[in-house]
Amino acid sequence: MSEQDVVTEAAAKAPTRSRENTRTRLLDAAEQVFAEVGLGETSVEAICERAGFTRGAFYSNFESKDELFVELAGRFASRQVEGVRERVAAMIECGPETGAGEDDMVGLVEALDVPGDVRLGVLLMSEIRNRAMRDAKTAEAYLAQDAQLVREVSQLLEEVTHAKGLRLVLPADDAARFVLNAWEGAASRAIIAGLPEKELQEARAQEVGRIAHLIIEQG
């Protein structure tokens, strides 16, 4: 590649990086404002002010506030999957000789927690789901993300059960759905009850333990 080609390629990539940085800052700002006032009260103006951009910058990256929040929910889900992947890698590295059973599945689901505020993630997903019930475009995006998350967790469940000498007693996709519903349901109830973080984690672990007895058996 000639020097001119290198310069041209670098110049072409610069706007892309700048756009990605702008989108990331807008998403970060939206997450902060949402945590403070909720989805309904989070305005485009408040997001732009927090991010340090104009409305023009917002609408050059997102068609609407709904589109931004669907992407924000997707980013949260991606963090969940990455956390699970790291947990699975650690489980597989330990090997089956370390024991297998309920604790493995509990640990797997606990890995769905992402760095930061667990409550924020649960509240975000809940409000996005509620919005999806009323708006077809949001519903389409939400369902696509939800299906992807189930596929990812399904694959990870198959990997860890195989590595630990376990067997799922129902199809992996169904098991993944049970796991995800158990995690979110326990977290939601704990949040509604106003439990502190430690008790929230304990409640979630207990719920996951009950689910583990239903979906796995020794190989």
Rank of each mutant, 00 (worst) to 15 (best):
L149V: 08
N61F: 03
A111P: 01
E152Q: 14
V6T: 09
A77V: 13
A139W: 11
G194W: 03
A205C: 06
F58T: 00
L149D: 01
T42G: 00
A111T: 10
M1H: 11
M1R: 04
A163G: 00
R19A: 11
E36I: 13
L27G: 04
C48F: 00
D117Q: 03
D174Q: 14
G185Y: 12
E217L: 10
S126Q: 15
L200R: 12
E9H: 09
V33R: 01
T42E: 01
L157R: 08
L170V: 15
R55E: 13
P196C: 00
P171E: 09
R129M: 11
R129P: 09
E3C: 04
Q155F: 14
G165N: 01
K13F: 11
D146K: 03
G194C: 00
A186L: 05
E152G: 07
M1N: 09
F178K: 05
G52L: 02
G95V: 01
E102D: 07
Q145R: 08
A77T: 11
N130Y: 13
E184W: 14
A132P: 03
T161Q: 05
Q145M: 05
E67G: 06
W183P: 03
L156H: 04
N130T: 07
N130P: 10
G107Q: 08
V70Y: 07
A35W: 03
V6Y: 10
T24D: 14
P15I: 13
T24L: 02
M91C: 13
L120H: 09
K198R: 11
S188G: 07
E97M: 12
T16G: 10
G121W: 10
V150Y: 12
L200T: 08
E67K: 06
I216F: 05
K198F: 08
N21H: 12
A132H: 03
Q218D: 09
R75E: 02
N181K: 12
V160N: 02
A205F: 03
I191P: 05
L120M: 01
V37Y: 00
E36G: 02
I47C: 04
S43C: 01
V84E: 03
E63I: 04
I191L: 10
F62G: 01
M125W: 12
E82V: 15
M105W: 13
L123S: 07
A12I: 04
A132F: 09
K164Y: 03
T8K: 14
R134I: 05
R50D: 08
A176D: 03
A12T: 06
F53W: 07
E31H: 04
D135Y: 04
R129H: 01
S154V: 10
D5I: 06
S2C: 09
A190S: 07
T16C: 10
A14P: 12
A147G: 02
R167E: 12
A12L: 15
A30P: 09
L195M: 06
L123N: 14
F58Y: 04
E97Y: 10
A175K: 06
G83Y: 07
L166K: 10
P115A: 02
E36N: 05
E82W: 14
K164T: 07
A29N: 00
Q155M: 06
G219D: 11
I128G: 11
G219C: 06
L68D: 00
E207V: 15
A205T: 14
T22S: 01
D173L: 13
S154N: 15
R189F: 14
G101A: 06
M125I: 11
A89V: 15
L143R: 09
F76A: 14
F62Y: 02
G95S: 01
E197K: 04
T138M: 05
T54E: 02
R85S: 01
K13Q: 14
